[in-house]
Every structure is written in structure tokens, then in C-alpha cells.
Design a binder for these strands. Sequence first.
DNA 1: TGTACATCAGTGAACGCGCGTTCACTGATGTAC
DNA 2: TGTACATCAGTGAACGCGCGTTCACTGATGTAC
Lengths: 177, 177
Amino acid sequence: MQQRRRNARGEGARLRDEIIDAATAILEETGSEDAITLRGVARQANVAAPSIYAHFTDREEIVAAVVARAFGELDASLAEAAEGGLRAICEAYLDFAAERPHRYRVAFGRHHNLPAGEVSAEGQAAFTRLVDACAGNRQTATLIWISLHGYASLAAAVPAFPWPDRPAMLTAILAQT
Amino acid sequence: MQQRRRNARGEGARLRDEIIDAATAILEETGSEDAITLRGVARQANVAAPSIYAHFTDREEIVAAVVARAFGELDASLAEAAEGGLRAICEAYLDFAAERPHRYRVAFGRHHNLPAGEVSAEGQAAFTRLVDACAGNRQTATLIWISLHGYASLAAAVPAFPWPDRPAMLTAILAQT
DNA sequence: TGTACATCAGTGAACGCGCGTTCACTGATGTAC
DNA sequence: TGTACATCAGTGAACGCGCGTTCACTGATGTAC
């Protein structure tokens, strides 16, 4: 085990973030959700395996934290693009999916069996950005969302498919408005 | 190991199908792709683990076979619905995704890094059914496909989201034509 | 028709490995007096 | 200011487990003569 300067008192929580960093790095490098193992994450974070237990009760909680952070990042991306209008938000959405393909896939690919009405807060926030850009029309925002998601995830899954170029795609998607 | 009547001579290939059955059953019951382990599949198929090697070189090849079969089933579903026209095909697509959620997710969620132009034959066949129903218009078929996939996969992933009902959704999706 | 034999489908034991988790612990950091 | 001590972040060794894979094998099935 390599040297690691340990956190000062009261800053133990910092390791929590480093663990999520480590898990995210593993996911994005290997492309595989099951490569996120407790021991692997510990190695990546330069920490002994049992140290994780101070911050997460099990492996699953680490993955959930990775997903929550990814949704937060997506929301931030969309927020930044909001002033550019609906098309800019859609561009930002597609950029996010293209640049962080594995985080995107895990975040939207897992089946979130949450109790009715309880969608994750971060995900809801991101969707609300879309609704706002659609002048509050949820129906339109939903249609655009499913098209964006369908395009983003299929383009990542089947790159060999002869996809239309992105501007044409976006124009067609937005024609639904 | 429980009793198992072994296949007659020349029918050894039958076990291959039983292995894919077993792997598919595990996937659909657990909902987890990594629950498809070589030993687990062997147990489910009532066979000793090394018996698998006569038919598959490794675990990955089993998963690939599960995916290939799923695409074949999807194609068959769409073919059956074809005479009912475009809307019927879309209904069949959504039914398939709703009834076999985990197969659908694994089939379309994996990143198929195939050499350019080499999309899986089964997947291509299914897409062609959609193109045919769109009077040969690939652009339209592509748009409908991404909407169907977006809806199917997001509805499975986030069931708590207030989705419009399916007929309304389909009508909106098909309005793109 | 009988029998020796090759083939073929599948087995059982064994291996080394990485995993999640537990346990008793260490030693630096800050605090009370 | 010095020092004893509690707290807190993190460690190292050990466990049992299921995994993928290998190996030499078994015994039923079909075939040649």
C-alpha cells in the first residue's frame, strides 16, 4: 500500500468524495459497472479496503453515489446551457452523454425501482430544465427527452449504424415542438 | 448434481440451446447481467460447469448468444405485427421491451464495438421491418426508432415518472412521420 | 446375431484468484488541565 | 507552556466463498465386422 497523507480531524468526510472519484474513474476507464468492486475502488483511492466502510455500508451504495453525482453533473451542464435556449440545452445533453458514456449509461440504464412519485432529486432537476425551456410544456419536454435519450444511448451502443449527423438529428427532434 | 438425461449422439448441440435458455432465465429472474456466471448457468442447466466449454469458449460468448437470440425474438415479433402496419409494429416493439425488460436492456445497453458497417444481422433485420413500414424512408424510421427506444428504456428505468399513457405517446411519436 | 471398439456427451476434483467483510490494532491529531 | 489522554482516520491480517478454468476420467451410444 502506497503512502497516503491522511485527512485531518473533522475532514474524514473528504475520503468519501475521493471514493466516489475513484469509483467513477474505474467506471469510465473500464466501461463496466461490475468493475466497481469495493477492493478495486480502495486500490484506486490508495486506501485499505476496510476504510471504505466508514463512508459506505456496501458496494451498492458506492454505485448509487456515482449515479447521483452523474445526475448532478448533468443538471449543472444543462443549467449552464439554459440561457442559450432549448436547442443549446439539447446540445448540452447530447454532449454530456457523448463525453461520459459509461456514467450516462449506468445512470439511465439501471432500473430505479423507487416508490411511486419518488424520482431522484437530481434527475428531476435536470428534467425541469428541459420543461422550462419548453415554456412549461411537460408533454413536449417528455417527447424531446425520450428522443434525446434514444439517440444518445443508441448512438453509443451502435456506433456503426449510419446515424444522420447531429444538427440534422436535433432539428428533426425539435420539430416535434 | 441432479439427474439429467444426456443427449443422444449427434444431438450434443441441443445443450447449447439449453445453456442459452438457462442464461436467459437467470438474466430475466435476477435482472442482473453479471448474475450470468458460467457456474450459475451450468447449475441452472443442470449440468457440470466444464460441460459448457464444449459449446462456448467463455462467459462472454454466452451473453453474446443471449443478446443475439433476443434480437432474433424482437425481429420475429415485429415480423408478426408487420401486416398491421406501422403503429402495430411500434406496439409490438414496446410490448417486447415491456415484457422482456432485462433482455431488452442488455441487448440495447451494451456497447457493441463492431467494425464500421458491421451491425449485428438480427438487429439490422428488426430495423429493416421498421424501414419497410415507413415506406422505405430510413430517416423517418430512425427517428421513430430512437423515440421508441427512448420511451421503452426510460419507462423501464424510471417507472415512477408520470408517463403519458401509451396510445397518446405512440400518436405523438408517429406524428413525426 | 453377437461382440469388440471408437466416439462422444458429460463428470468430479482440484487449482489459484479476487472478492466482501470482520477483527483487533495503530498512530497522528487535537484537547483538557 | 507542557503533558496526559481521548478521539478519530485509517491499517493489516485473516476468514470463507464463488468464480473461471484445467485435467484426467467415465460410461452410454452407436458402428464395424
